[in-house]
Computed example of a mutant assay.
Amino acid sequence: MSDEPGTPADDFPHGAGHPARGALRAAGYTRLAQLTTVTAAEVLALHGVGPKAIGVLREALAAEGLAFAGE
Rank of each mutant, 00 (worst) to 15 (best):
G22H: 09
Q34G: 12
G50Q: 11
G48V: 11
R21V: 13
R58I: 07
I54F: 08
P19R: 07
R31D: 08
H47F: 10
T36L: 00
I54C: 09
H47I: 11
V56G: 06
I54P: 02
G17Y: 00
A40Y: 00
A26G: 14
A40M: 06
V49C: 09
T39F: 01
A40D: 05
A26W: 07
K52I: 13
G28H: 08
A33K: 13
L24H: 07
G22I: 05
L44G: 11
V49Y: 01
L46C: 11
V49T: 12
G48W: 02
T37Q: 06
A20V: 09
I54M: 06
L24A: 08
A20Y: 01
G48K: 03
A53N: 03
R25Q: 13
A45Y: 02
A41G: 04
P51R: 14
A40E: 03
G28E: 08
A26S: 15
L46V: 14
P19S: 09
R21M: 06
A23Y: 07
A40K: 04
G50E: 04
V56S: 02
V49K: 01
L57S: 01
A41S: 13
L32P: 03
P19C: 04
L57C: 08
A26L: 13
L44W: 00
G55F: 04
L44K: 09
A41V: 09
P19D: 11
Q34P: 04
G48R: 05
L46E: 03
A53R: 02
E42A: 15
P51Q: 13
K52D: 12
T37P: 00
V49N: 00
R31F: 05
A45E: 07
E42T: 14
P51K: 14
G22C: 10
T37F: 00
